[in-house]
Design a protein around this nucleic acid. Sequence first.
DNA 1: TGCATATATGTCGAATATGACATAATCTAC
DNA 2: GTAGATTATGTCATATTCGACATATATGCA
Lengths: 102, 102
Amino acid sequence: MKAAKRKTLEAKGWKVGSVEDFLELSPEEVAYIEMKFALSNTLKAHRAKEKLSQVEVAKIFKTSQSRVAKMEAGDPSVSIDLLVKSLLALGASPKDLAKAIS
Amino acid sequence: MKAAKRKTLEAKGWKVGSVEDFLELSPEEVAYIEMKFALSNTLKAHRAKEKLSQVEVAKIFKTSQSRVAKMEAGDPSVSIDLLVKSLLALGASPKDLAKAIS
DNA sequence: TGCATATATGTCGAATATGACATAATCTAC
DNA sequence: GTAGATTATGTCATATTCGACATATATGCA
């Protein structure tokens, strides 16, 4: 955020800070969430590359379309485990995953 | 395994193959397990570097010594999620984790 | 517009992961 | 040896994650 914009908002009574400040997240929690979103986005990218619908990859993953949607949204109910397993099922290699979180 | 050793075992009636053949694991399952062990070993390495006991890191992680032991053993009851969170709590960066699984 | 396809959200019972505890095994001096 | 510290294993009640379903909200196209 630009300093000018920050001043404007603060003048209007907003408390301005980073998202992690606002939600009171520790650096580890932030890193964890960022990793999850990185994997979510990678999953979306892999599915887009294959031009598959969520219903189609759901069959490959042996799960439901709704869970695929939640995976891609980085929903709190989705574990990194599930994202990793799904990405591997889509043909991603461990190195691809490493790149994704770097 | 050396070819000679393989021949000897096969002559005795053993079916010789890779661990994944024996356990009938798919490549994805193998990759998943290997990632888990990579993270387990990284966790052990980080703890060793800090010269902490399992009891000590258990306090940091807010868990028990027995679960730490299972984490480091790559026990099936331990998720990648838990390993990632624990490593982050020990000060590892996402890049460190990326290196670990590469 | 209306209709089909795709994606998102909320909820629920079942499955899995979790921390905790007891106890066993292993290591490390003395 | 053995005493103390450390690490490993088995089990269990609770918590979290899971697939599935219903339903809502897009998105595209005639």
